[in-house]
Design a protein around this nucleic acid. Structure first.
Lengths: 191, 191
DNA sequence: TAACGATACGGAACCTTGTTCCGCTTAGCA
DNA sequence: TGCTAAGCGGAACAAGGTTCCGTATCGTTA
């Protein structure tokens, strides 16, 4: 589990500079900002950025790692602090949606079929699906949900609903996610 | 409203050739296939393709126009042939999902925030949102839905849920859409 | 039917964006 | 102070959409 710290001091400095620059650019221009812009903002050459982060996706992961970890850790905590697992699930999903919707363009880049996004998609899935599974299992065990759904499908569905939520005030992803979750409590096979 | 037919015979011939080639390539390699591939398949130069279809999106629209029209026309028909507006809505949405999910990568390219896709997104919205609105209004009027939702939001939500439905058998978009629609019948603000 | 002008065509060239390569620089050590 | 490997900058490459322009062709007219 050891952190692979770059040996040289200037390298360590550059890594931090790059993370800061990337974060700033992502806020200003969205997650889809060109790598060149980030390098420019950091005052660094292309080679440097790619030695530290072998791929665009790796840079994105690095920038958001803390928040993803925090979200993952919030799962068990919510489960513990709510008497109703369903309530915990709803709160956790809302937290995830808040995170994703806030990062201009992140949802759109989480799709596995997008080129060069495999690592990013995999990281989100690996880290969050197990947490989602735990919440979902508890909710099902408590009998609060009628329709079973695989955790992966829930995560991807929620993520997909968040796409384009920024950049169009007429589209309220949070509400659609609430409706989707509400649908889990209903019989689905009628009509 | 007049069809702007190209005057010259070879031009008309090429347009048809291009549409056929594009359709074939979309089936074989997905909607994201490079324009060059389509030109090659049609045995035509790049200039030709761009004179007939000013943009990738315009070509995509042209290829799927018939099916989108058919889907739009199915709305009122379903409303007429079902005693329950909700049933009609469900069937219409299922039809739309079938269409979108079947076209390798189409859902992913329908997002308005994607570059160069504005025309495509606009066409789908212009043609289908009014139909959806009609179905939704009828369903609400019949009191079959508790949660009101703007037609545009429903269309975009459904479309988003379809993203990546091909290329991953573990993700069943149809089921998620059913759950979303089911959610419309529940109280959403609980828990 | 031959000539001519407008219409189309082909495909090289351009732009943007991710990624790779390589010669030069410099930190860290003896 | 010098040596060497770790780092660095940025030009170059690949891929995809789009534009441009010289050439070929259609269809009409004399």
């Amino acid at each position: 589990m050891g952190e692979r710290k770059p040996k040289r001091a200037d390298a360590r400095r550059n890594e931090k500079t790059l993370l800061d620059a990337a974060a700033a650019v992502f806020v200003a221009s969205g997650v889809n900002a060109p790598v060149r812009d980030i390098a420019a903002k950091a005052g660094v050459g292309m080679g440097t950025i790619y030695r530290h982060f072998p791929t665009r996706a790796d840079l994105i992961i690095a920038v958001f790692r803390h928040q993803v970890e925090a979200c993952a850790e919030a799962g068990p905590a919510l489960l513990a602090s709510n008497e109703s697992p369903y309530a915990a699930l709803v709160q956790w999903v809302e937290r995830y949606v808040d995170f994703v919707v806030t990062k201009h363009g992140l949802a759109g880049v989480l799709q596995s079929d997008q080129a060069g996004t495999d690592t990013l998609h995999a990281y989100f899935v690996d880290r969050l699906v197990p947490v989602c599974a735990e919440l979902l299992d508890a909710t099902v065990a408590a009998g609060e949900i009628r329709t079973e759904l695989r955790p992966l499908e829930l995560m991807r569905g929620v993520g997909n609903l968040c796409i384009g939520a920024d950049s169009d005030p007429r589209y309220d992803a949070r509400r659609l996610v609430r409706i989707l979750i509400a649908g889990l409590r209903c019989e689905t096979m009628d009509a």
